[in-house]
Design a protein around this nucleic acid. Structure first.
Length: 208
DNA sequence: CACATGATCGCCT
DNA sequence: GGCGATCATGTGG
């Protein structure tokens, strides 16, 4: 029995009431590292049975395509699983790790350039502040699965990403990515970004 | 076809 | 700091 991709009811939001504005295509067609930073404070959301469910992103990681040994698209690897990474920026790429965790990525750059930003953590509701404090937990809480991989975040009716409000501007820390020790030199690249003031980051982060 | 291995997490010591 | 859960995917025979 597979769990239904149902979002956690406590994540119900009303984008309009919050003054959130959906990110447009151009947002995703910029430098991937810039996007990874700009996603801190942005909202990832999906609609389920007529209502929106979403959360404020507080931790991301950039994956830089064919030249990045930590990326699934390293050396241009192109299989059915990774295919969404080759889509135009603004699509979603979801993969399964350790047989149980669905991890959501925002695809960036023009079509053919397999870069993406992994959504590592988002803020949970007051009664469960760490509900989305990790990529696997984020996917579970929003009910995102590999069935959503390849879907477009732009102009859709049931999946969306809302740009970070102008203020408050988050204080952003950076550090090497997690779980990519096998990637040689790339393992040390500072491509992980997080909100220094959020209690929901997935791990104790070195300050900066 | 067979097998090794994760872009993880929570619990254990 | 270590480990088990649990399986799709990629690779090689």
């Amino acid at each position: 029995m597979i769990a239904k991709p149902r979002p956690d009811a406590r994540l119900a939001i009303e984008p309009g009431a919050l003054g959130l504005v959906e990110a447009r295509r151009a947002f995703y067609l910029r430098d991937t590292v810039d996007i990874a930073r700009d996603l801190i404070g942005a909202y990832i959301a999906r609609r389920w049975r007529g209502r929106w469910y979403g959360a404020r992103i507080v931790e991301t990681e950039a994956y830089l395509g064919a030249g990045d040994a930590a990326a699934h698209s390293f050396r241009g690897r192109r299989t059915s699983r990774v295919e969404p990474m080759y889509a135009e920026g603004g699509h979603l790429y979801v993969f399964l790790v350790y047989g149980m965790h669905h991890c959501a990525n925002v695809v960036t750059a023009r079509a053919g350039r397999p870069e993406a930003v992994l959504l590592r953590a988002a803020e949970g509701p007051p009664e469960a502040p760490r509900l989305l404090s990790g990529p696997g937990k984020l996917g579970a809480a929003l009910g995102l699965t590999v069935a959503d991989s390849g879907r477009d975040l732009v102009g859709g009716r049931s999946l969306a990403l809302f740009a970070r409000p102008r203020k408050p501007r988050p204080r952003i820390g950076e550090a090497p990515r997690i779980g990519v020790d096998y990637a040689g030199e790339a393992a040390g690249w500072p491509l992980r970004f997080f909100d220094l003031d959020s209690p929901a980051v997935s791990r104790r982060s070195s300050r900066k």
